[in-house]
Write a protein that binds this DNA or RNA. Structure first.
Lengths: 157, 157
DNA sequence: TTATCACAGACCAAAATGATCTGCGATAAT
DNA sequence: ATTATCGCAGATCATTTTGGTCTGTGATAA
């Protein structure tokens, strides 16, 4: 529950690798899958979804593969999640998939849960593929205090 | 993906109801299940977990049921989630369940994902059952600006 | 022409989740 | 003491989601 799927993990790993390999670096499915021990067929599907979402550019040819279509800073984790798994919603009622919710009429906790969801989405949108590849030490400098990252788990107690 | 389970939904609904019914209000499974159209057996299990976690107090007798064991302000959504579904982790590697992760050695995105996870957990911990029952208008006053709730979804663009 | 790549979809397996069924134990009211 | 009402416990099954496999097609540079 509240867990990212493996497909998303794979997508993030691949995108992070591509981000590190520079602007026009081309990586193919076979190599990435081999490096991270990912089933090639699965990664292939994931990459296709990222391509359709406009996050990466496909080069369909020998020595081809994929390259980032936009800068790593512009690719948020939320975009990746949405591209791979569809719209994100922590409550089933709020993503339009559950139109037969038995609790809908009596439900009196929707608003706060949706607010909570918006915050999570905001975080996912705020974290870019570029930041994903930063070492903790590097990230630390810009994440203490004002930034949303690196907050303590417990706000009290 | 990233979705709360129905059991958690049920737990939050029940706890919210109990929070509204006052300090020593006792509610039984049958009534709550009936009110929200929840399968009684499911809700029963959920309530038992909440009881074992020390969030509610059981009264095993006729006219019995459950009452809050601690104040609604002290019951965070994270506590509920953990009680009902076990430890929360958005990445499988970080909750100790996946000790055979094929990507572990090569994985270079763990740190930022764990940071992201900590932020989500922090939000879940910051939201209490009491706040869950507040109307949007009521909540709005204390959530604009400094508070973590009610942030805009997009921080840029 | 061919080997290497992406593209596409059907298909199956495993796991998580939701729900049901059955029986037991505690206790207040009668 | 008996009984009806409640929680407690677990095994079991169905459904959905997810992860993975298989087969084949189309594009293109060497």
């Amino acid at each position: 529950m509240l867990k990212l799927t493996k497909k998303v993990d794979y997508a993030l790993l691949a995108l992070n690798l591509m981000a590190k390999s520079g602007e026009d670096g081309i990586s193919n499915v076979r190599d990435i899958a081999s490096l991270y021990s990912i089933p090639p067929e699965i990664l292939a599907k994931v990459m296709q979804k990222l391509s359709k979402a406009g996050l990466i550019q496909s080069h369909n040819a020998p020595k081809g593969g994929y390259s980032l279509k936009v800068q790593a800073e512009e690719i948020s984790v939320l975009k990746v999640l949405t591209a791979v798994e569809g719209p994100v919603g922590i409550v089933s009622c709020s993503d339009g998939t559950d139109r037969t919710c038995q609790q809908h009429d009596q439900c009196d906790i929707r608003s706060p849960l949706e607010r909570l969801q918006n915050n999570i989405l905001w975080f996912l949108e705020a974290l870019s593929i570029r930041e994903l590849g930063q070492e903790p030490a590097v990230l630390k400098g810009v994440t203490d205090g004002s930034s949303v990252f690196g907050q303590p788990l417990h706000h009290k107690g």
